[in-house]
Lab assay of single mutants.
Amino acid sequence: MAAAAAAGAGPEMVRGQVFDVGPRYTNLSYIGEGAYGMVCSAYDNVNKVRVAIKKISPFEHQTYCQRTLREIKILLRFRHENIIGINDIIRAPTIEQMKDVYIVQDLMETDLYKLLKTQHLSNDHICYFLYQILRGLKYIHSANVLHRDLKPSNLLLNTTCDLKICDFGLARVADPDHDHTGFLTEYVATRWYRAPEIMLNSKGYTKSIDIWSVGCILAEMLSNRPIFPGKHYLDQLNHILGILGSPSQEDLNCIINLKARNYLLSLPHKNKVPWNRLFPNADSKALDLLDKMLTFNPHKRIEVEQALAHPYLEQYYDPSDEPIAEAPFKFDMELDDLPKEKLKELIFEETARFQPGYRS
């Protein structure tokens, strides 16, 4: 834990890192770190609560700039109880001085990944967590956004079992017609939660990839272990087919990539493993919904509104309290091709509203 900075004593240090967030945020305490930044909790002297502050230093890398800009653009436009918001952003007053960006968010005690390492969940908890994931996802999908990296560590939890989806750095506007060349190379989302079509096709992607990830998360809540822990690309596919069985001819016809289709045709026939054999203690309604989410063919996979209306979630289902976005989200430009200098300018502009004396 960093010592509390005395008023006016300059930035606090946390594990050798400068955290320049005073005077409003003090009493910093280390939480963890990701690929390009550290997260601390801090005391907000204005709202009198502890908050989470993520320090991001992305400006050396085009990919990190892209992810940072995506996350900020999306989260500043989203407003939903099951999606983490941005409360404040701290950065230098000029673009030349801006080396880091500090993002202030609600402090959540833990995440689903940490929880599943230590606790076996009751059916009631599984049901409530799944409902909140789908409630947040309904809003995301209504904005025409794909999260693309749903996994237990991106689901934040607090002691009252509130759940918030975080990390929109890989999110995209849904565009089933656009052929994202190089899709697989830039697709760094965790393999275990990846839909089979991501490994088999490169053309376009749809909201059904997020539903697949939610199915993987439900299976993990039922058993405290990942359902498809593939060691590499082909191993991942083999794990999936080992449980779902061989795809039907109709399902194979959806695979545009001939090499991928021929690979699947070359494999020995596998039978589907019954879900109640894998999860003998699970609620039968939970397994019915799991089956509809972990469907090989993305066109037959359940959609988020149908999933919310499934009998497993009937005690929570309330369409009048499951809000959607006001308007579909649009990125003005494809960020993939922009140089990091341009992305830095866009991050600077996007964060201006939090600067003292800002006038829109």
Score class of each variant (00 low, 15 high):
2 A>M: 14
2 A>P: 12
3 A>M: 07
3 A>K: 08
3 A>F: 07
6 A>M: 13
9 A>I: 05
11 P>R: 12
12 E>L: 10
13 M>Q: 04
13 M>C: 08
14 V>F: 14
14 V>T: 09
16 G>A: 09
20 D>F: 12
21 V>Y: 05
27 N>R: 08
28 L>K: 04
30 Y>P: 05
32 G>F: 03
32 G>V: 13
33 E>I: 02
34 G>F: 00
34 G>V: 14
36 Y>K: 12
36 Y>V: 15
38 M>S: 13
39 V>D: 00
39 V>K: 02
45 N>H: 12
47 N>M: 10
48 K>E: 13
50 R>Y: 11
50 R>H: 10
55 K>T: 08
56 I>L: 14
58 P>N: 15
58 P>I: 15
60 E>K: 15
61 H>S: 09
61 H>L: 15
65 C>A: 14
66 Q>L: 15
67 R>D: 04
69 L>K: 01
69 L>Q: 14
73 K>T: 08
77 R>N: 06
79 R>V: 11
79 R>A: 02
80 H>T: 07
83 I>P: 01
84 I>H: 07
87 N>Y: 15
88 D>G: 01
95 I>S: 08
96 E>D: 13
96 E>N: 06
97 Q>P: 14
97 Q>V: 11
98 M>V: 00
102 Y>A: 07
102 Y>Q: 10
104 V>A: 00
106 D>L: 01
107 L>P: 00
110 T>R: 02
112 L>Y: 02
115 L>G: 04
119 Q>L: 13
120 H>Y: 12
125 H>L: 14
125 H>I: 07
128 Y>Q: 06
129 F>T: 02
135 R>M: 08
139 Y>I: 07
140 I>W: 03
140 I>F: 14
141 H>M: 10
143 A>N: 10
147 H>E: 04
150 L>R: 00
154 N>V: 03
160 T>Y: 02
162 D>P: 06
165 I>P: 00
166 C>D: 04
168 F>P: 01
168 F>G: 02
169 G>Y: 02
171 A>D: 09
171 A>V: 12
175 D>F: 08
176 P>S: 10
177 D>P: 12
185 T>W: 05
186 E>C: 03
188 V>T: 06
191 R>W: 06
194 R>E: 12
195 A>Q: 08
197 E>M: 01
199 M>L: 15
203 K>S: 09
203 K>V: 13
207 K>A: 13
207 K>R: 11
208 S>F: 10
209 I>M: 04
212 W>Q: 04
213 S>A: 07
215 G>T: 07
216 C>R: 04
216 C>H: 06
217 I>D: 06
219 A>G: 10
220 E>M: 06
221 M>I: 14
225 R>S: 15
228 F>S: 02
228 F>N: 08
231 K>R: 00
231 K>P: 01
238 N>L: 12
239 H>N: 15
239 H>D: 12
239 H>Q: 15
242 G>T: 06
244 L>H: 11
246 S>M: 07
247 P>F: 02
249 Q>E: 02
254 C>Y: 13
254 C>L: 08
258 L>D: 04
260 A>E: 07
263 Y>G: 11
263 Y>R: 05
264 L>M: 15
266 S>H: 04
275 W>G: 00
276 N>S: 00
276 N>T: 05
277 R>I: 15
282 A>Y: 02
283 D>H: 08
284 S>M: 10
285 K>G: 10
286 A>P: 03
287 L>H: 07
288 D>I: 11
291 D>Y: 13
291 D>S: 04
292 K>I: 11
294 L>D: 03
294 L>R: 00
298 P>Y: 00
299 H>C: 09
300 K>T: 05
301 R>G: 00
303 E>A: 09
304 V>E: 11
305 E>D: 15
307 A>F: 00
307 A>I: 00
308 L>F: 03
310 H>G: 01
314 E>Y: 03
315 Q>H: 12
316 Y>Q: 09
318 D>H: 06
323 P>A: 04
324 I>Q: 06
324 I>N: 12
326 E>K: 13
327 A>R: 05
328 P>K: 12
328 P>H: 13
329 F>Y: 14
329 F>Q: 08
331 F>S: 05
331 F>T: 08
333 M>C: 09
333 M>R: 01
338 L>M: 14
339 P>L: 12
340 K>Y: 06
345 E>P: 02
346 L>S: 11
346 L>K: 11
348 F>I: 14
351 T>Y: 01
352 A>Q: 08
352 A>N: 10
355 Q>P: 04
357 G>V: 15
358 Y>T: 12
358 Y>L: 11
360 S>D: 09
